[in-house]
Design a protein around this nucleic acid. Structure first.
Lengths: 256, 256
DNA sequence: TGATTCAATTGATACACATCAAGGCCGTAG
DNA sequence: CTACGGCCTTGATGTGTATCAATTGAATCA
């Protein structure tokens, strides 16, 4: 039974994780729901009906388009994504980034349409959960709902980083907080959280943080000269996380 | 049956709403769950076990303390609240504000403890839903879960204002966006959304927006001189919402 | 390999906002 | 009514960051 789970849900063996940064199913936000739909479902291989597994997504491709009717949620299996709104001036306002193990599309659940675009920052893969077919679960629907509640609740808590970024008075604090939030989110899904590659451009970071591109660049250089981290393009290594936390002003804050 | 609902859940008649800005139950985020727990519950008046109704909260009083174990969620019935974290320097970082009809405490659901403080900004009242007793609902638990999912999903969408605030380049855009977000949140629960009283101090607004108190004050005066609104202390009247939206840069954004 | 293009860095200047400081406007209490 | 204290406003100055401009670096493709 356990081997079957690996087969159906996790085609990628653990050994290959470090190469491509693919999350294990056990660390995936969809895991609970995926399990309910697949493991002991009334209809065998019901999981094939409800969960689409490891669909590849090309860089720049939109997984979700703003305004389209809600129908499914996605779990990032590998790669990364950004979500954004298109503003009046035509510019895009980046809302958030998504990394392996995290769920995308939950925002569309209540209103029936997705509120923003979701675009792949690199070659990625996702698992898809089809909401139109969850009633096939029958009496296990309640169990599924419980998993969904967990996922939604986790999501609300994850958002607590954003106000910290908001409240940061200067660019230094913002950039430090941003890096720490990335590291924390990676760590939560057992991905490398000290040495990692930034999947998004400086432009995206600046947009997200409400700063100028040049300022973001300067902050990275400043941190490097302070020996808090090392940057080579998009490759980052955090060298003194505690100092970064102090600098960010959230030394005693236990954010996710 | 309908009259009973009014009795148990909504002691305040509609006519008194405009005076005290109490939300009707129909517009309360807890309504669905409250209904499940009360109206046709297997045990009569089960609602008394699970839902505490209209408990008064004094100004400055903490409804939820950071770090305490999760046990219940609260709906704002009247008044308003702020949530905040305490930072390393002892200062507080305001996370969000809550207004009538909105739910507080959902962030504690996944981790088992509440992540931040929730404090009343004025004399307020709340309804309380006791999670430890929801299993008393028996077979109606699934229905309850569905309501909870709706509430959580709505919450994730509500948070979409925050990134817009984040992305705002200057104080003008931030302040305009803030006022529009308040107005939209009031409107969603059928509260006055054009003329209203700001329940929070300039200090709290500045903290939330990451600006200086003086800057917030100056922006209000600027908007007044542009005839976009009228301010008298904490009393605000929006005079040209469309112009405010243009100024905020989210003319075509359909944020909640 | 070298050409092309976009991303990222680095520097110089201007301006928006934080900061410091003082005054006015409430509320509440004596 | 007057006096106090907090909150809000208004003004002057310095600084942090946006902006403009140019250079370097790193991918992609011929």
């Amino acid at each position: 039974m356990h081997t079957k789970e690996r087969e159906t849900c996790c085609p990628t063996p653990r050994s290959s994780r470090r190469k491509s940064n693919v999350v294990e199913c056990e660390s995936c936000g969809l895991y609970g729901m995926c399990q309910v739909a697949g493991l002991e479902a009334p209809v065998p291989d019901l999981i094939d009906e409800i969960v689409g597994r490891r669909e590849p997504v090309a860089i720049g491709q939109n997984v979700i388009a703003a305004g389209t009717p809600f129908g499914e949620i996605y779990a990032v299996k590998s790669g990364s994504f950004k979500t954004y709104l298109t503003l009046a001036n035509g510019e895009q306002q980046i809302i958030d980034f998504y990394f392996p193990g995290e769920l995308m599309g939950l925002e569309g659940l209540s209103e029936g349409t997705y509120p923003h675009m979701v675009e792949a920052l690199e070659a990625s893969s996702v698992c898809r959960l089809d909401f139109a077919k969850v009633n096939l679960l029958g009496e296990r629907l309640g169990e599924f709902q419980q998993q969904l509640i967990n996922a939604l609740s986790k999501r609300t808590r994850q958002d607590q980083w954003v106000p910290l970024l908001m409240g940061a008075q200067n660019a230094e604090q913002r950039t430090a907080t941003f890096l720490l939030s990335l590291s924390a989110r990676f760590a939560e899904h057992e991905l490398p959280s000290v040495r990692f590659k930034l999947p998004m451009s400086r432009h995206d970071i600046a947009n997200y943080l409400g700063l100028a591109v040049e300022t973001v660049s300067r902050m990275f250089q400043r941190f490097q000269s302070m020996e808090l981290l090392e940057v080579h393009g998009r490759h980052v290594e955090l060298r003194d996380i505690d100092a970064l936390r102090v600098l960010a002003g959230l030394n005693n804050v236990n954010a996710t």
